[in-house]
């Protein structure tokens, strides 16, 4: 029998949302036939946390969930020392979620110098620079389980992934959340009369949807295999990005009536030209409720 890939899952300052999102992976049994956790926050493992932090148990991949600070301890050992120790022995490190990638929501907690492993928002963190070559970032609050698990398989299969500037696999993060949203037609034709509680309308114009400028695959690889936030009617909150969470999240920030954050790579002039053209049309199908005659 082929040897299982040994994985260590260690948690910093976190809500365990990534842990629970991971458990939503549909083919978990098959995954556990191929991977073995030497420690996991929920799944039984061969070693206790105390044994993990006091030794260097051989393993292949280190998964880090949660924000990181020199002040945080796990079983009476400094989290940064545990990371440094295991970073030396593993082949790869994955930052699991936005907190361990960019610092996330708990950047504003009361711990000192709280960051992600390599990034404090967009700024590079010096402390772990030496292990940057080993790291892949799967951002998201929480991570989509398929993104994490397929990345683990790619490590198992020794596939070199193309990564973006924040070490995220391009296969998942070269897209925007906007790709595949069922509200796209309303965006394209600038039908901006969206109301909450409706299947119709685009939330980019008024309700703070960040999907057109947020990297990820939420509308390409659906959540829980059935839906996405924007399809349901919740604006994308940009949870895969370095500056998550921004403020005033349910409102679109505008300058002179123009959204302050434009779709990724679209110049203001291009946007204005397109908006002007599309505004010239009235598309009845998009102006009424979609199920109406």
């Amino acid at each position: 029998m082929q040897q299982k890939v040994k994985v260590l899952w260690i948690t910093g300052l976190a809500c365990n949302g990534n842990t629970h999102s991971f458990l939503n992976y549909p083919n978990l049994g098959q995954f556990l036939d191929n991977f073995e956790f030497i420690y996991h926050p929920i799944i039984e493992s061969k070693y206790s946390l105390e044994e993990i932090v006091s030794n260097t148990i051989p393993c292949d991949v280190l998964l880090i969930e949660g924000s990181i600070s020199a002040e945080i301890e796990k079983a009476d050992k400094k989290l940064i020392d545990i990371i440094s120790n295991y970073a030396k022995v593993v082949n790869k490190i994955i930052t699991v979620g936005t907190c361990s990638t960019f610092g996330g929501i708990f950047r504003d907690s009361e711990y000192e110098d709280i960051t992600g492993l390599h990034f404090n928002e967009t700024l590079e963190v010096e402390r772990f620079r030496k292990i940057k070559d080993k790291t892949i970032s799967i951002s998201g609050c929480p991570i989509h389980p398929e993104l994490l698990i397929n990345t683990l398989y790619s490590i198992k299969n020794k596939i070199e992934l193309k990564l973006d500037e924040y070490l995220r696999p391009k296969e998942y993060f070269a897209y925007t959340i906007h790709n595949g949203c069922t509200r796209n037609e309303y965006f394209e034709y600038k039908v901006d009369n969206h109301q909450f509680g409706k299947k119709e309308g685009c939330m980019f114009y008024d309700h703070g949807c960040q999907a057109p400028f947020t990297h990820g695959s939420c509308n390409k690889i659906l959540w829980n295999e059935v839906n996405s936030k924007t399809r349901a009617g919740q604006p994308c909150m940009g949870c895969t990005e370095p500056d998550f969470p921004k403020s005033n999240l349910f409102k679109t920030k505008k300058n002179m009536g123009i959204p302050a954050n434009l779709p990724l790579g679209v110049a203001k002039r291009t946007y204005l030209t397109l908006a002007g053209v599309t505004k010239a049309f009235t598309i009845n199908r998009l102006e009424k409720d979609i199920f109406d005659d």
Partner: peptide, 27 residues
């Protein structure tokens, strides 16, 4: 997982959606 799917059908995803807003729900 089945229960998470049921939440996602209504709220978009699970965990961590914000589908309930002041005045009702977005979906």
């Amino acid at each position: 997982q089945i229960m998470a799917k049921a939440i996602a059908v209504i709220g978009g995803q699970y965990p961590h959606n914000s589908y309930a807003v002041v005045g009702g729900v977005v979906s």
